[in-house]
């Protein structure tokens, strides 16, 4: 018993203070990968059945809501198509220098999620893509719905991804509503829990409204310390925005678009030109 406790303490110390065990751990994770994939496949039909049953109950009301949204977004898309064309023209005219753009400056690597967040403490997942697929530490991870997080550890065929809901994660984000320009802040784990995020450091003179969409802010130009997250990745929607006399900044709660608790697959954005 004492031997096992000592062995655990030695493992913690070595693993925490050096990278000596990383290759062994990576090999172990690669060996476990087929078993994890098999377990996920076995659970898949049950997960689908539960999701299908839930969908049946909400289908009618959801259909009505989505039709209304479709009409609205069709109009927005038409307007924005014109704006995108104008934007490209103006950039050329101004010889505008920019940081890497999403998605054209990145190569997508799709990967299956092997393990979901193990506990409330550690908001990390492991994915079935590693250095062999070109994935590196600090690569950005997304789904078609929006931002997931960043790669923090890589082995040959498995990587660990730190989710945006982890206490150690911070993302520079901005309100995408063109009526409220300049509301840039730092997106962190919300104190309310429940998978909510908090957009901090937004000064009181900026306007942010409930329902606004929050996207990654990226970094202006090619500075010495650019944000690892390219500009314009969807993050979530503002669920509450307020301020009081004591705090220097606004209190903004954001609900992520991605259901980070039950991810099944993700896309790693590998920069086409590594810095």
């Amino acid at each position: 018993m004492v031997g096992l406790v000592l062995a655990s303490l030695v493992l913690i110390t070595v693993s925490f203070r050096s990278t000596a065990l990383d290759s062994i751990q990576g090999a172990g994770a690669s060996a476990l990968r087929p078993f994890e994939t098999a377990a996920t496949r076995v659970a898949h039909p049950f997960r689908d059945a539960a999701s299908w049953t839930r969908g049946l109950f909400n289908a009618k009301s959801e259909n009505k809501k989505l039709r209304a949204q479709l009409d609205y977004w069709r109009q927005v898309a038409n307007r924005e198509q014109v704006a995108v064309g104008e934007n490209a023209t103006f950039r050329k005219l101004l010889h505008f220098e920019d940081s890497p753009l999403f998605p054209q400056d990145y190569r997508p690597v799709a990967a299956r999620v092997l393990t979901n967040p193990p506990s409330t403490f550690t908001q990390t997942i492991t994915i079935a893509a590693g250095s062999g697929a070109g994935v590196a530490v600090q690569d950005v991870v997304v789904t078609p719905d929006g931002l997931v997080g960043q790669v923090t550890k890589v082995s040959s065929s498995v990587s660990r991804v730190l989710l945006i809901t982890d206490p150690e994660s911070a993302v520079s984000a901005v309100d995408a509503n063109p009526a409220h320009p300049g509301a840039v802040g730092l997106l962190e784990r919300g104190s309310a829990g429940g998978g909510q995020l908090s957009l901090d450091r937004v000064t009181k003179d900026k306007t942010v409204q409930e329902g606004d969409t929050i996207v990654t802010a990226g970094s202006p130009g090619n500075g010495q310390l650019p944000s690892i997250f390219p500009r314009g990745i969807l993050i979530g929607t503002v669920t509450s925005a307020g301020q009081n006399d004591i705090d220097l900044f606004k209190q903004i709660q954001v609900q992520p678009f991605v259901d980070l608790g039950s991810l099944q697959s993700v896309i790693v954005l590998v920069p086409k030109a590594k810095p």
Binding site: M1, L4, V5, A7, S8, L9, V10, L11, I12, T13, V14, S15, F16, L21, Q25, G26, G28, A29, L32, E36, L114, T115, P118, T122, T124, T126, K153, S155, V158, S159, R160
Partner: peptide, 23 residues
């Protein structure tokens, strides 16, 4: 100890962490 090692390896977490608690 064994269960903790499997969990920490699968999650690419700090090795020995879960092992210590489960031991």
């Amino acid at each position: 100890f064994a269960a903790g090692l499997v969990i920490d390896t699968a999650n690419l977490d700090t090795l020995g962490f879960t092992s210590l608690l489960l031991t």
